[in-house]
Computed example of a mutant assay.
Amino acid sequence: MASASSKNLRTPRRADDSSINFFPDLPGYSDPTTGILSWLPPSWIPYAQLMRIDRPAGLYAFYFPYLIGIMYAACLAPTAPKPSTLLQLASTLFPLNILLRGAACTWNDTVDQEFDRRVERCRHRPVARGAVSTISAHIFTLAQLMAIYPVLTFFPASCRSHMGVTVVLFFVYALMKRVTHYPQVVLGFPFAWAVFFCVASLDLDPLGPNAAPTLALFAVNVLWSIIYDTIYAHQDIKDDEKAGVKSMALRFRDSTKLLVGTLAVCMVTLLVLCGVWLDCGTLYYVGTAGVAAAMSYYIYDVDLGDPQSCGAWFHDQFLTVGVPLIAGFTGEYLCRAAIL
């Protein structure tokens, strides 16, 4: 028979749920006294928290696929673009990704507020704790999306439709944990759509003559997202189960390492195929080998039963896996541009 606390956690949200403290034995919320948030006026802090300004790892998840996509697109271009052109694209995409991430996280926190109150790690998020109302959060989401548009004017018109698809997919993802144990699969698609956006940013057709390597890299990004987000979800697996949140961490809780290990093999295989179809040279495959080594150690070393280990590896793997992935395409571009 379920305990009283379990019954409360599974009860559908009532009108007064926002006043219920599901973790009465844990400390209440207080504004941070150190770090970037401590520099802000108190009224700004909840909105900065909605944007995750103080948590850079999530920004890596948004920004790195665009850096990968830029260097991949540079390898596709009939005439290698100048390094200054690529740096300009990368610098313009940085604020765009801050806003995109902010809008996606704000929307996610707004629609997930009833779940967040029941999950220890998420209970102090601004909407869940009542620091920002639902209406204010929706207005803030819209404001961030509107702020993206001026940045998009620096890119070809075709990029706008790709960004539109990305936004829709992020918004759909936030609802998927209610209906399927595979929200991580859905999450992979808006992250991977960065590849299409970046190819279009150089006035190339993402599904043109080089559709095969482009789709392979798209799939690589989807698999990468599934791997790290499934491991990340193990932080909250007990609370998620009580709250009714679905995830691949719950679906494969006893075989997660086998699952992500298999996906990692598929990911590296697709990277190799991408290189073959692009006729890449040695430097690209050195980067691919770095991805394989980093991913292998990441999956081997992470302790799925330790939330701190899962959280730390979520942060670190963007550098250990993402940097060699970017470096492989960068090396190939430098060779094609006759810079090396």
Rank of each mutant, 00 (worst) to 15 (best):
Ala212Val: 15
Leu223Ser: 05
Phe252Pro: 01
Gly281Arg: 13
Ala216Val: 04
Thr269Ala: 13
His234Pro: 07
Glu241Arg: 07
Ala264Ile: 06
Gly275Trp: 02
Tyr228Val: 03
Ala243Lys: 10
Asp240Lys: 01
Leu215Met: 10
Arg251Phe: 14
Val268Phe: 12
Thr214Lys: 03
Cys274Asp: 09
Ala233Asp: 05
Lys246Pro: 12
Val272Pro: 05
Lys257Gln: 03
Ile227Val: 01
Cys280Arg: 07
Val260His: 04
Glu241Leu: 14
Val265Trp: 01
Leu273Ile: 13
Tyr232Lys: 04
Ala243Gly: 07
Ser255Phe: 08
Ile231Leu: 04
Cys274Arg: 10
Asp239Arg: 03
Lys238Tyr: 14
Thr282Gln: 15
Asp236Ile: 11
Tyr232Trp: 12
Lys257Phe: 07
Ile226Asn: 06
Val276Asp: 11
Gly281Glu: 14
Thr256Trp: 08
Arg251Leu: 15
Asp236Asn: 08
Gln235Gly: 11
His234Arg: 00
Ile226Thr: 07
Asp254Lys: 12
Ala264Glu: 12
Ala212Tyr: 04
Asp279His: 06
Leu215Glu: 00
Leu215Pro: 08
Cys274Tyr: 04
Lys238Ile: 15
Asp229Met: 07
Lys238Glu: 15
Met267Glu: 09
His234Thr: 03
Met248Trp: 09
Leu271Cys: 02
Leu217His: 00
Val265Phe: 08
Leu250Gln: 15
Ser247His: 10
Ser255Pro: 08
Thr256His: 06
Leu215Thr: 08
Ser247Ile: 05
Ile231Asp: 01
Leu217Gly: 05
Val220Asn: 08
Ala249Leu: 04
Val222Asn: 03
Glu241Val: 13
Leu258Val: 15
Met267Pro: 02
Ile226Val: 14
Ala233Thr: 06
Ile227Ala: 03
Val272Met: 10
Tyr228Ile: 03
Leu270Met: 00
Thr230Glu: 07
Met248Cys: 10
Val260Phe: 00
Ala219Leu: 11
Leu259Ala: 06
Met248Glu: 01
Leu215Trp: 11
Leu271Asn: 01
Ser255Arg: 13
Trp224Pro: 12
Cys280His: 01
Ala249Ile: 10
Ala264His: 14
Asn221Pro: 12
Leu250His: 14
Val276Ala: 13
Tyr228Arg: 09
Lys257Asn: 09
Ile237Phe: 12
Val276Arg: 04
Cys266Ile: 07
Cys280Ile: 02
Thr262Pro: 01
Gly275Lys: 02
Val276Gly: 09
Gly275Glu: 10
Cys274Val: 01
Val245Asp: 02
Trp224Met: 11
Tyr228Asn: 03
Gly244Gln: 10
Asp239Ala: 13
Lys246Asp: 04
Phe218Thr: 02
Ile231Phe: 09
Asp279Gln: 14
Thr269Tyr: 02
Phe218Ala: 04
Gly281Phe: 00
Gln235Ser: 10
Met248Leu: 13
Thr214Val: 05
Val245Trp: 01
Ala219Ile: 05
Asn221Trp: 10
Leu258Glu: 15
Val265Gly: 06
Arg253Leu: 12
Val260Met: 08
Val272Ala: 04
Ser247Asp: 08
Leu258Gln: 15
Lys246Cys: 12
Thr230Trp: 10
Trp224Cys: 08
Val265Met: 10
Thr256Phe: 06
Tyr228Pro: 07
Asn221Gln: 06
Phe218Val: 05
Arg251Trp: 10
Leu250Lys: 15
Thr269Ile: 09
Ala219Phe: 05
Leu250Ser: 14
Leu270Ile: 06
Asn221Gly: 11
